[in-house]
Amino acid sequence: MIPLSGNIDNAKGIVRENLGSFETRRGTSTLKRGFAHMLKNGVVMDVTTVEQAQIAEDAGAVAVMVLDKLPADVRKAGGVARTASIRIIEEIMDSITIPVMAKCRIGHVYEARVLEATDVDMIDESEVLTPADEFHHIWKWDFTTPFVNGARNLGEALRRIEEGAAMIRTKGEPGTGNVAEAVIHIKNVNTELRRIKSIYDAGDEQDLVSMARELKVSYSLVEETASLGRLPVVNFAAGGISTPADAAYLMTLGCDGIFVGSGIFKSDDAKERAQAVVLATTFWEDPDKVKEAQKLVDERQSMLGLDTKNLELRMQERGSTA
């Protein structure tokens, strides 16, 4: 059974149709969130080509995320970053059996419609691309395809869930090879969850109402989340993860799984690193096994990485006011 707080039963994205003599429903919260549940304890890898997608699948990725450029290259290139070429997404969908995700710009309803029509398995409304609407995210209940969104804190996470996100990930600071921001974001979420949980346990409804105002989200979603003591959807780590130990560390902080962006295919030992990050994510509770995984990679082959203090572009701030 999966928690369905903030569910909308008559959402526009739900399709009723018949399969032979069977009545079916597609695009329900159970199906969208359930899809994310199947990814738990797994690694989703950013890829830009069919070849990279095959390396990811062979290494044991649970899904791939197709981009035009890896986040580190988006940062370097500047200009406007948009959704990937549909032709490449389709080629990748035809060559591997694991789920294929793709990114659209924040608020860009029609890029998302195009990705849905392409039949990708999940859409990432992502701060890595240049936002199309700084003030409104996509109303994701209108779609049959599930969405994942980034969040830096509980308020952002719950607002995205209220808009229909079926999965949350930390934003971190993409394309930096630096895990520090992702660590801050998951700790923010955990601290705030503990806070609303303790208010809920104390039975202080008044304080819970003021939390809902502070988080800018409906009271009922805050109340249900507080009673669960965790986000009502699957929550992955993302942004700056580049080594097996990075992945294992984020798993210890309570993440349900890992997104690796530039960390793998901007390194010089992508194949070994892809396998190593999967091993470390699976066996994160066992330091000996994570050591074995870490041994598969060479630090001299890691992407160089950036100090997140002096960045000209902080992708994580995109879409955070909404």
């Binding site: 399969l19 069977f22 009545e23 079916t24 429903r25 597609r26 695009g27 329900t28 159970t30 199906l31 359930g34 899809f35 969908m93 059996t97 789920p99 849905e116 039949d119 990708v120 398995d121 999940m122 049959t144 395809t145 599930p146």
Partner: peptide, 13 residues
């Protein structure tokens, strides 16, 4: 993936 990709995922009795 007999019924198709995620968009074709469904619930039925």
């Amino acid at each position: 993936n007999t019924f198709g990709r995620q968009k074709e995922s469904f619930e039925a009795d």
